[in-house]
């Protein structure tokens, strides 16, 4: 999956660059505005269905107890705090940097959505910051587990429900499965809300 995503990003970048050199403005408007917005809305809709149809997650919550919710909310708060502080540290727009970090690792959403809300530079940041978050979670799991039992879950953010779940379970043990999955599920669900709500702060 990652291979195809990076390939389509690269291909899009090259074709976009060439198109800009040749000056086909109509194509640029079609892809950058219509196709982009259409695909973003379609992704949110399809992900909504996937969240809504998931009966098991509701049952898992009942079993695990709602105390488990502190984990995703601490991760969300931590990510947004990290974004706020880096905004001030780098003297860039702190609202936009909070929104970028509120992708919680879901780069296929955070990239396009932040690009749409704050401009393409933030789209690029949204993609890279969240893409590397997923990559770093997998790469450093054997080290991060030494900091805290839940550190890999905290690092994985929204990706803890799918792409980083196998690695987390392998290192944190099978009892971390439900926590990791539910934390990732909640973070994926709230990511579009937090990004757009942060954007209204401007």
């Amino acid at each position: 999956m990652i291979r195809y995503i990076l390939l389509s990003l690269l291909l899009g970048g090259i074709i976009g660059y060439l198109n800009n050199c040749w000056g086909f403005h109509v194509i640029e408007v079609f892809v950058s505005d219509y196709l982009f917005n259409f695909a973003l809305v379609a992704l949110l809709f399809v992900m909504g269905i996937i969240f809504g149809v998931d009966k098991e997650s509701t049952e898992r919550f009942k079993k695990a107890g709602f105390r488990i919710l502190v984990v995703p909310f601490a991760i969300a708060l931590g990510s947004i705090t990290g974004g706020l502080i880096s905004g001030f540290l780098l003297s860039i727009n702190p609202v936009a940097s909070m929104a970028v970090c509120a992708g919680y690792g879901w780069y296929t959403l955070a990239g396009p959505l932040n690009g749409q809300l704050f401009g393409m530079e933030w789209g690029a940041l949204g993609f890279t910051v969240n893409f590397l978050r997923e990559l770093l979670t997998i790469a450093t799991v054997s080290l991060s587990i030494k900091i805290d039992k839940y550190a890999p879950i905290a690092m994985g953010g929204a990706t803890a429900m799918d792409t980083t779940l196998p690695v987390i379970v392998r290192y944190c043990g099978s009892d971390a499965l439900i926590t990791a999955f539910l934390s990732g599920f909640i973070l994926s669900l709230i990511a579009p809300f937090t990004i757009t709500l942060i954007a209204t702060l401007i």
Binding site: L9, L43, P112, G115
Partner: peptide, 14 residues
């Protein structure tokens, strides 16, 4: 996702 990321790349490239 492929279409969305392609158009993200396109917008960045142009």
């Amino acid at each position: 996702i492929i279409i969305l990321i392609f158009s993200l790349g396109f917008s960045m490239g142009s």
